[in-house]
Amino acid sequence: MTAEPLLFLFLAAFAVTTAVLMIIQRNPVMSAISLIGNFFCLAALYLMLRAQLLAVLQIAVYAGAIMVLVVFVIMLLNLGDEIKLPVRFGFRRTVGVVLGFGLLLELTYLLLFTPETAEHEMLHADAPLIGTVEAMGTALYSQYLFPLQLTGLLLLAAVVGAVILAKRRLP
C-alpha cells in the first residue's frame, strides 16, 4: 500500500504545478489548458477518495463543458492581447501576493496545530460505498430532491440570462 502516498504526492505536485502555470502564463489559452490539466488531477484525487461519480462529473462538467466554453469565448473574442500589455507589477499586485501567501500561512498553521485524531488517518470504512453512482443517485433523488429541483431551475435561469446578456442588441 505504499503506492498510494506516492501517487498522491505525484498528483499533488502536478496539481500545484498546473495551478501555478495557469496564473503565470501570459497567454489565456495556455492558462486554460493548464487548468484543464489541474482538473484532471483533481478527478484522479477524487478517485483516490473513492468518489467515482464526482470524478466522472469533474471531467465531464468542468474539463469538458465549462473549460470548452471558456476556450470558446477566448477564441471568439480573439484574446491573445495580454501578452502585448506591459508587465506592471504595482503596489496592488504586491499586496495581493503578500496577502495570498499570508492566507496560505494561516491555513498551514491551522493544519499543523490541529490535534490529530484516529479517524483522520484512514478513509472511512463506508467510503467506497457512498461515492458510487447508486448511492449518490439515491441520496440526490430522496434526501436532496428539493435542492436538486431548485438547481434545475437555477440552470434554466442561467440559460435564459446568458442568452439575454450575450445576444446582440437589435437596433
Binding site: 463543458a65 465549462i66 466554453l69 438547481t151 437555477l154 440552470l155 442568452v163 446578456l165
Partner: peptide, 23 residues
C-alpha cells in the same frame, strides 16, 4: 459529496452567465 454536486451545478450556471457578461 452531494454538496460538491450542487457546487458543480452552480459553477456551470455561473460559467454560462459570467461568460455572457464578458461577451
Amino acid at each position: 459529496q452531494a454538496l460538491v454536486f450542487f457546487v458543480m451545478a452552480v459553477a456551470a450556471a455561473e460559467a454560462a452567465v459570467g461568460l455572457a457578461i464578458v461577451i
